[in-house]
């Protein structure tokens, strides 16, 4: 079964089309990246798949469950990490993870979350005292501790320093090896090239290329995905 199947997905705001008939599919255990500049429609696609906003047209399925119809079931098997998301500042890291874990079955979830976050003793500090990197690690732990079948991460390393960003990339790769499927959006093309099995280049609401990073580089005779993107949109 495909983890994600999207066919002719459209999102309109009045007469404006933010997403213009996008189609792609993601295999189970795959890290799939949506790459494109700001305003290309990446976050809109992620939000539709995360059941946050409604599609205007087309079809989207997550592990066979139809988005817009089986939303309650979909929310049990996915997790979504929005770009630049925060957490409840008056809670400690532990309290925040416990709050999220309380919506799922399984006593081990909280402990797993604490381990993934790698916050050590700081897990019992208030979130308002965390650095940006610590908050992002906590949020990623929140997204992964429930062991979702699909993790949708919007700009997972946005605004982080090199060390924190690298830690998060390694974590994503480790969980993918264990069978978790990832749908990642980023405008950092070098990052996506490094962690994604396959990528879709998206521009102005349309997918212009889908393939493995190496094959795309070969096709466009480019040194990196940035060059691929520039040549593809010409």
């Amino acid at each position: 079964m495909k983890a994600i199947e999207v066919k002719n997905l459209v999102k309109r705001y009045g007469e404006f089309e933010a997403v213009k008939g996008v189609s792609f599919s993601v295999e189970e255990g795959e890290i799939f990246g949506l790459i494109g500049p700001n305003g290309a429609g990446k976050t809109t696609i992620l939000r539709i798949l995360a059941t946050l906003i409604k599609k205007s047209d087309g079809e989207a399925k997550i592990f066979g469950l139809e988005v817009g119809i089986n939303d309650d079931e979909i929310r049990k098997i996915i997790s979504y990490l929005p770009e630049e998301a925060g957490a409840y500042k008056n809670m400690t890291g532990r309290q925040y993870l416990a709050f999220i874990a309380s919506f799922f079955d399984g006593k081990e979830i909280l402990q797993r979350g604490i381990e993934i976050s790698k916050l050590g003793d700081r897990i019992d500090d208030k979130i308002e005292n965390y650095s940006k990197g610590m908050v992002r690690r906590l949020l990623l732990a929140r997204a992964l501790m429930t062991m979702p079948k699909l993790a949708i991460l919007d700009e997972p390393t946005s605004g982080l320093d090199v060390i924190n960003a690298n830690e998060i990339r390694e974590m994503i790769k480790r969980f993918a090896k264990e069978g978790m499927t990832f749908l990642i959006s980023s405008h950092n093309m070098l990052e996506v090239e490094y962690i994604c099995d396959r990528i879709a280049l998206i521009d102005a609401g349309r997918i212009i290329e889908i393939d493995e990073p190496e094959k795309l580089k070969e096709k466009y005779d480019a040194k990196n995905i940035e060059e691929v993107f520039i040549r593809a949109i010409k």
Binding site: L52, R75, S79, P82, A85, Y88
Partner: peptide
């Protein structure tokens, strides 16, 4: 804080 988006996907 975008915590609402997280809450709505739970």
């Amino acid at each position: 804080n975008k915590t609402l988006e997280t809450l709505l996907t739970l």
